[in-house]
Structure formats: structure tokens, C-alpha cells
Design a protein around this nucleic acid. Structure first.
Length: 205
DNA sequence: CCCTGATTCGC
DNA sequence: GCGAATCAGG
């Protein structure tokens, strides 16, 4: 495989979106993540602008730039498309009143977006909201925005298998973020899936 | 061990 | 220019 204009374009797009090199490599096919990283550097779009969802090296060198062995003029890449991190008003522990799991935080499509939960159709065994700490809930709602939104087929040994939404609707996917070592869920979902007995009992009403 | 990006250097 | 090997780190 070679770096055709098309492939380079997708590389730029995905990199700009904050996708990891391995994910990009997977998507493109025929290349390894090393190839992707190498290309990224050659293209001069090394440091990303947006957020970095993946737990990786922040790459934050101090202002004092030390000239490398070979002073390499690296023309910065002024990305016109500004991708500022969302302010995130930091809702002060909005306590969910519903007894059902909090599935909807924001509506993507105002008109067609109705949080319909088929009556009598039990949802997957998700802990009811009133048993989970507000902090953990906030965390979950937070990361679900960054979820990989994988389908059942796309799940692997190390992708979070937390289901989101209603399997009977379009609004359904699996979290897909990197799992915590030895667990089936990512850090945030582990937080709501596994709780100390004491915490559960204490929260009981 | 899983993953991340960064760098080097033979090709 | 390319990318495997390696490095450095979470």
C-alpha cells in the first residue's frame, strides 16, 4: 500500500479528530501504526490541536526549545479548523431523578429524538441510577461522548463492553473505550459496575 | 501486559 | 519517502 492522496486525506482527517495512530492504521488497512506515525511526522502535523482522548504521552515540552542535533525547521501546521475543547459547564452533580438508567443527556436531533423506552421491555442489567454516586455518573456521561460506539461485532478482549442505549433502537452501541486491566469495562464504567458493598448498602434507601 | 506517540536509520 | 525497530511513557 502506498500513501495515495485519498489515504493521506483520511489520515489527516482522522488524526485531526484525535484518533490514535493504531486506529487510523486499522481503518486504512495495509499499514501499521508505525507507518501512520511516520507519515504524520513527515506531513508535519505532529502535535494535535484537539483533545487527546487516549491515555498517552501528552507531549508537552517546555517553552524553551532546545535545538536538536540537526536544527530542523519544522513549519508549524496552522490548522484552519479550530478544534477547541468543549468548555463543559461542569454540571454540579445533577442528580438523576428517574429510576431508569440515565441514557439521554442531550438530544442530537431535536425532532426525532425521543427517549423511548419500550414498556415491558427490560433493558440490559444496568445499575439503577439511585445506587450510583453522582460523581461516577457524571464521569460516565462524560466519557460516553467519547465512546467509540462499537457494534457487537467490533468488541474485542480489550474494548469496554458497556452497552449504551436501547438495543431496540438506533441509539445503541457499546462503549468500546480501552478496558481497565483484567476488567470488561473501561475505567468510568468499572466505576459504576463494581462498587464496594459498603457503598451499595449505605446508599440504600 | 495493554496501549500511546516519538525517533532513528537502513532501505 | 517509507516504516520496522526501538524508545519513553501511561
Amino acid at each position: 500500500m502506498s500513501w495515495t492522496d485519498e489515504r493521506v486525506e483520511q489520515l489527516k482527517k482522522m488524526w485531526g479528530e484525535g484518533q490514535s495512530a493504531s486506529q487510523i492504521a486499522k481503518e486504512l488497512g495495509g499499514v501499521t501504526r508505525n507507518a501512520v506515525i511516520g507519515k504524520v511526522h513527515r506531513l508535519g502535523l505532529s502535535n494535535r490541536v484537539g483533545a487527546d482522548p487516549a491515555p498517552a504521552a501528552p507531549t508537552a515540552p517546555p517553552p524553551t526549545e532546545q535545538p536538536q542535533v540537526e536544527a530542523r525547521a519544522k513549519p508549524a501546521t496552522p490548522k484552519p479548523e479550530a478544534k477547541p475543547k468543549i468548555p463543559q459547564p461542569k454540571t454540579e452533580s445533577a442528580r438523576p431523578v428517574s429510576t431508569e438508567p440515565v441514557l439521554e443527556t442531550k438530544s442530537a436531533q431535536p425532532p426525532a429524538r425521543r427517549a423511548i423506552i419500550p414498556a415491558g421491555q427490560p433493558l440490559p442489567p444496568q445499575p439503577s441510577a439511585n445506587e450510583i454516586s453522582p460523581e461516577a455518573l457524571a464521569k460516565v456521561n462524560e466519557i460516553e461522548k467519547k465512546a467509540k460506539k462499537l457494534t457487537l461485532m467490533e468488541l474485542t478482549e480489550r474494548t469496554c463492553k458497556w452497552p449504551v442505549g436501547d438495543p431496540a433502537t438506533e441509539h445503541f452501541w457499546f462503549c468500546g473505550l480501552p478496558v481497565q486491566q483484567g476488567k470488561p469495562y473501561c475505567e468510568a464504567h468499572v466505576g459504576v459496575a463494581f462498587q464496594p458493598m459498603s457503598a451499595r448498602r449505605d446508599r440504600r434507601r
